[in-house]
């Protein structure tokens, strides 16, 4: 059986809010290492990969592999019944029909309990190759969100070019064009504001801004985001979560015919 207790319901709320625009139904794969999720969007353009390691929970107990097939709209409805600061416990039997969610207030004696019916989801898992990316950019997640939002006002696509000069996000649209260039930057007062660019060779790729802007819904999960790029492979957008857990988005590039 599964029993996984999260100190703050907020973490799961935010994770689900971040992916619900991309994915409708998905399996939460539980085993002794934690709770993982991998799902493509309907258009097969983007892939979400989440890992909540067992260390992110206390306690965490899951003695065999359990796949919880959950409709994310249903999960969102139930998670709205939790206060952000509530302690959340997920429970399921070994071959479950439902997943049980218990929300406890640390301050009062309130205890809420919900069951969500599970679905059989025949989900294909993709093998994500280990990639040595040509460029990695770590930057404030709010900054990435702002750039994405600003350029989306002008265009559907963004070109991301990374050179030793810095990283340039640029777009061309009907009303004109725009670009934002960031250079490596160390903020002495607040390292959350740092921009670090790790480059082994120049990269230039084009991506859909609609997808990037969806990924940016995860900005509330982490003050930092890491973009990893290599020519002609999907972009990796990664938000680090507590206890070495993560929420990753992969986005296939747009490539010239």
């Amino acid at each position: 059986m599964l029993e996984a207790r999260l100190e703050q319901a907020n973490l799961l709320k935010k994770v689900v809010d971040s992916i619900t625009n991309l994915v409708q139904d998905c399996n939460f794969d539980c085993n002794d290492s934690g709770i993982a999720l991998q799902a493509m969007d309907n258009s097969h353009v983007a892939l979400v990969a989440m890992m909540l390691r067992s260390d992110a929970f206390s306690p965490f107990r899951c003695d065999r592999n359990i796949a919880l097939g959950i409709n994310l709209t249903s999960l969102t409805k139930v998670l709205r019944c939790a206060q952000n600061e509530d302690i959340l416990t997920l429970k399921a039997e070994d071959a479950p029909d439902v997943v049980n969610l218990v929300f406890e207030s640390a301050e009062s004696d309130r205890l809420s309990e919900y069951d969500i019916k599970l679905m059989d989801i025949d989900q294909e898992h993709l093998g994500i190759p280990d990639t040595e990316y040509a460029a990695s950019i770590t930057m404030p997640s709010a900054e990435f969100q702002r750039i994405t939002r600003d350029l989306l006002a002008l265009s559907e696509s963004v070109s991301i070019e990374c050179t030793k000069e810095g990283v340039k996000f640029s777009c061309q649209g009907d009303i004109g064009s725009g670009s934002v260039t960031l250079r490596s930057h160390t903020n002495v007062d607040n390292e959350d504001r740092n921009v670090s660019i790790d480059l082994s060779e120049p990269v230039s790729l084009m991506f859909s801004l609609k997808y990037l802007s969806n990924f940016c819904k995860a900005s509330g999960l982490s003050s930092r985001v890491k973009l990893s790029l290599s020519n002609e492979v999907p972009l990796l957008v990664e938000y680090a979560l507590p206890s070495n857990s993560f929420l990753r988005f992969y986005l296939a590039p747009k490539i010239g015919d």
């Binding site: 493509m40 097969h44 892939l47 993709l126 190759p129 696509s157 296939a252 747009k254 490539i255 010239g256």
Partner: peptide
Amino acid sequence: KTQQRSILGFFAKK
């Protein structure tokens, strides 16, 4: 002219 690629073109089904 650019075309949106599918993620399946890069990551194989297991």
